[in-house]
Simulated scan of single mutants.
Amino acid sequence: MADENIRSIQTGLAGVGYSPGPIDGIDGPRTRATAVRWGQGAPVAARDVAPVTTSMIYQGSARYPAREIIVHCSATRPDWMDGDGIDAQVAEIRRWHRANGWRDIGYHWVLGRSGELRAGRRETEIGAHVVGRNNGTIGICLIGGFGSAETDRPEVHFTDRQLVQLRNQIEAISMRTQITTVSGHNQYAAKACPGFHVPTWFKGA
């Protein structure tokens, strides 16, 4: 059963840069280990980055400052809708998300297999891509990633063009708002998505 005190601790740990796992109110081993690291003054994960601009994007009527980019995947096969094009793929993802009762696609950006970039929600809108962490985050979805694992290397499931464009887009967003964190969906949920460890990839390790 979820405990609101545990949920508050998880939210606080995530807010200062740690990765306690899903914000679910469950006192699991990852939450406990992260709390110990925080208590010991251990450094946060390598996903933290220094802002490169003084500009800020604010989301929603509450004006949440957008400080984090979270990377996702569509969990589709490499040949999914092959030949239909990125616009058709984005339309299909939008259909999935609306079927969930959402008003629009949950991501702010979608990256096709050939590196094509398409906009989803406006960056000034709150997304719908990570439970408990949509406020103040920008979601980017890579097409692909079917059957991936959290520990896979990104080039196993995504093309070179996608990964180059992903890095370019992260840098472009970072010029529009004070991004301090670049992470993957799997850091906040028990999922493989996006199919690799984003901080390690982003830091060039």
Rank of each mutant, 00 (worst) to 15 (best):
W80L: 01
R122K: 09
I26K: 12
R118E: 12
P29D: 12
K203Q: 15
F196W: 01
R122A: 14
W102E: 14
T76G: 01
Q178S: 15
T181I: 06
T180N: 07
S148W: 02
P65R: 00
V164G: 05
A192I: 04
T137E: 07
H129F: 01
L117W: 07
T181W: 04
T137C: 09
D104V: 04
Q162M: 06
T34Q: 12
G112V: 04
G147A: 10
I9Q: 13
R32F: 02
P51H: 08
R7A: 15
S55N: 12
G145K: 03
G41P: 03
R118I: 05
S174M: 04
T11S: 15
V156Q: 15
I86K: 10
D82M: 11
Q165K: 14
D48G: 05
I126S: 02
D160A: 13
A35L: 15
S74C: 04
I93L: 14
A192P: 09
I57Q: 00
T31K: 05
T200F: 05
P22T: 02
T31P: 13
E125D: 14
P78Y: 04
A192C: 08
I69K: 01
G145V: 05
L142M: 11
H157S: 11
G184K: 02
R32E: 13
N186C: 04
C141K: 06
T180G: 11
M81W: 00
A99E: 12
C193Q: 02
Y107M: 15
V198S: 04
M1F: 09
A119K: 09
V110P: 00
Q165V: 14
R118V: 12
T151L: 08
V130G: 06
V44F: 00
V131P: 00
